[in-house]
Simulated assay, not measured.
Amino acid sequence: MAKVAVIRGDGIGQEVVPEAEQTIQAAARAAGFPIEFTQFDWGSERYLREGRAMPEDGCETLRKFDAIFHGAVGGHPRIKGPVVQEHIILGIRFGLDLYANIRPCRLYHESLTPLKNKKAGEIDHVVFRENTEGLFVNVGGFFKQGTKDEVALQEEIHTYKGVERVIRAAFLFARRHKRRKVTMADKASGLRYAGGIWRRVFEEVRAEFKDVESEAKHIDAVAMELVQHPQAFDVMVTNNMYGDILSDITSGLVGGLGLAPSANLNMETTCFFEPVHGTAPDIAGRGIANPMAAILTGALMLDHLGCLKGGEAIRRAVEEAIGAGERTADLGGKLDTRACGEAVRKRLRV
């Protein structure tokens, strides 16, 4: 039996994750794949009670599971700054060394894209974002803070090991899934050192994958061309900050964050699955949040756990529900969170 740790978290995480859980269980059951969920109350309320959003030994607890399923954390009005996100999201990513953040974006219906004449399936991207280095290591500090002479420093960290393994993961994914091309996005022309190591390592790794078409482009060109010619891209790999931005662009091309799943992977440890969206405090508690990103994240988790039929059944059911107009308001529909989850579940077929 696959054992999954569940952290519903804060805000709409408390609303969308239950819909995802029910959908995952239904798909797994139909595929004959036993799965068990264990709930953890980690998040803002725990932080307010105990001073930590998750226990200091939280990562050791999570290693005992086959996967981690997470909703969203942060946004509490009584908590200043991103401390809860740092404890849980960054704490798990860094604590378990989950170096590859994978964000697939597929157009499920032509009405969801702002671009003209794009049909379902014609936009289909997978972004590999380096997940444990770059600007998000938070190396830096303030000098003369609070004065008009204040200086803020934020340093990037890029290692050969970190860059090589995420680029290699992107190529292996492309080969395994018969994807068309790998594009590496950097800024080697202006950032001599950070861009330089990414460009050199990419050239080294791509030489081992001559069967996979590949290219290196500057990040600003990739951002522009994604909007102009999205079909020219397939698998993309880049650093932590650029990947965060590029994956939001690709999400915007296919319907927004309500359809954006993600996986944080290192095949040598327990992996972490979460929708890309945040806690959305402006709509939390109203029962109108879109659960499809969480549900699609569940499909990624089932794929990872080896229940491929269950993952595919979920994606097919989501596409059929969207095609039938059974959507939440952010996608032009009228359903609430629970009804949207039910619309997907009634279409599950394995």
Rank of each mutant, 00 (worst) to 15 (best):
I167R: 07
R168G: 11
F171C: 04
L172G: 10
F173E: 03
F173D: 13
F173R: 08
R175V: 08
K181R: 14
A185D: 09
D186N: 15
K187S: 10
A188P: 00
A188W: 05
A188F: 01
A188L: 05
S189A: 10
G190C: 05
L191F: 03
G196R: 11
I197N: 06
W198G: 06
R199Y: 05
R199L: 06
R200I: 04
E203I: 04
E203P: 00
E204N: 09
R206Y: 03
E208R: 13
E208G: 05
F209C: 03
D211K: 12
D211N: 10
V212S: 00
V212D: 01
E213Q: 13
E215I: 11
E215F: 04
H218D: 11
H218C: 14
A221L: 14
A221I: 12
M224K: 12
V227P: 09
V227G: 06
V227L: 13
Q228M: 15
H229A: 12
P230D: 13
A232M: 04
A232T: 07
A232Y: 04
A232C: 09
F233P: 06
D234L: 02
V235R: 03
V235M: 03
M236S: 02
M236Y: 12
V237F: 01
T238C: 09
N240V: 08
N240G: 00
N240P: 02
M241R: 01
M241C: 01
Y242F: 15
Y242P: 00
G243H: 03
D244S: 12
D244R: 06
I245V: 13
L246Y: 05
S247I: 09
D248Y: 10
T250P: 10
S251V: 00
S251T: 09
G252W: 11
V254I: 15
V254R: 05
G255T: 01
G258K: 00
L259P: 11
L259S: 02
A260W: 01
A260D: 04
P261G: 01
S262E: 10
S262Q: 08
N264G: 08
N264Q: 08
N264L: 07
T269V: 10
T270D: 09
T270P: 05
F272M: 13
F273A: 12
E274C: 03
